[in-house]
């Protein structure tokens, strides 16, 4: 398990856990939840994830508080 920040462009990852409950609730609203598979489409400090038709940008600091399994 690594921080989401480790993901590279084109790589997929499955969300595993969050640093704390606050970060979890914050992310769950966007559909970033445990078990969700996301794909990285850009990395410029902030990471842009594709999830279905949605593109979500997540800042560097938050990416360090979301833990994933790289696929």
């Amino acid at each position: 398990m690594v921080a989401l920040y480790e993901i590279e462009i084109g790589q997929e990852a499955e969300v595993q856990s969050f640093l704390n409950s606050d970060i979890k609730c914050y992310s769950v609203r966007f559909g970033i939840e445990e078990g969700q598979v996301v794909k990285c489409i850009a990395k410029l400090g902030a990471i842009v994830l594709q999830k279905n038709n949605q593109e979500i940008a997540i800042g560097k600091n938050l990416c360090k508080e979301i833990y994933v399994r790289l696929i």
């Binding site: 992310s27 593109e55 979500i56 997540i58 800042g59 600091n61 938050l62």
Partner: peptide, 10 residues
């Protein structure tokens, strides 16, 4: 304090 995390829809 510090900056709040960025999470936005494109």
């Amino acid at each position: 304090g510090k900056a709040t995390p960025l999470i936005i829809d494109l």
